[in-house]
Simulated scan of single mutants.
Amino acid sequence: MRFLARFVALAACFLALPATAQVIEANVAGRKPVPSVTDKENLWLLDLSTGGRVTIWLRPDVAPLMVERVKTLTRQHFYDGLSFHRVIDGFMAQGGDPKGDGTGGSTLPNVKAEFGYLPHVRGAVSAARADAEDSANSQFFIVFQPRLQLDKKYTVFGRVIDGMQYVDAIERGEPPSNPTRIVHAYIAADNPPAYANLPAPAPVSLGAPVTLPGTGKPAGKAVPKRANAPAK
């Protein structure tokens, strides 16, 4: 009973912690300081074609090489216009491939694996790679639902802290028939413009009506014959 009482008290203390304290581990000996969630140099912004801005908190304390790669490519406008080419419901959305089929990357060298302690929980952003552990480059995936079996196998370098509803709305498919695209990617420290909804597509003009020769009747008014019409 004494053990149970202590366990209940400990659980109550944990639940009373602020949300950030429950998600972020405290700094411990041997680990680099955790960057602030308000540090704009470590906030990655993705404006999606399906609407909304996603804010990703980058973690250079855990994956400095991959974070630096993402920052470099973002500032080169590499991600602008790229699609989420592999999106599996209940699993993840993968993007960052200029070829759009999962085989492409940037012209920069591959990034060494940084398998840290961050888990593949909902909203985790991790580096996609080929079979070789040190083959990450530009591709990444955002986790819909926890996949802890990926821990220590893929490099988690960030987490969505705002706009997860827009991630949930990414078009599904392998590949999707109408893939969601990254309209623009920014690092918040570069003072990007405020998010603005994409303009609605211009209505398609059908042009003037076409008249059938010798009839004076618009072509669009012709009534097709009915095949296999039921008997009256």
Rank of each mutant, 00 (worst) to 15 (best):
Q94D: 09
Q94L: 07
Q94W: 05
G95F: 11
G96D: 10
G96I: 11
G96T: 09
G96M: 06
D97V: 14
D97I: 09
K99N: 15
K99D: 14
K99E: 10
G100M: 04
D101Y: 10
G102L: 15
G102D: 10
G102S: 14
G102T: 13
T103N: 10
G104K: 07
G104T: 07
G104V: 05
G105H: 07
G105L: 07
G105V: 14
G105Q: 12
S106G: 11
S106W: 08
S106T: 10
L108K: 15
L108W: 12
P109K: 10
N110F: 08
N110A: 09
N110Y: 06
V111G: 00
V111A: 02
K112Q: 15
A113P: 01
A113D: 03
E114I: 08
E114G: 06
F115P: 02
F115C: 03
F115G: 02
Y117H: 13
Y117M: 03
Y117Q: 03
L118C: 03
L118K: 04
H120G: 04
V121S: 15
V121K: 14
R122V: 04
R122C: 08
R122D: 07
G123D: 11
G123A: 12
G123W: 12
A124L: 09
A124Q: 15
V125K: 09
S126G: 05
S126H: 06
S126E: 06
A127S: 08
R129F: 00
A130K: 13
D131S: 11
E133S: 00
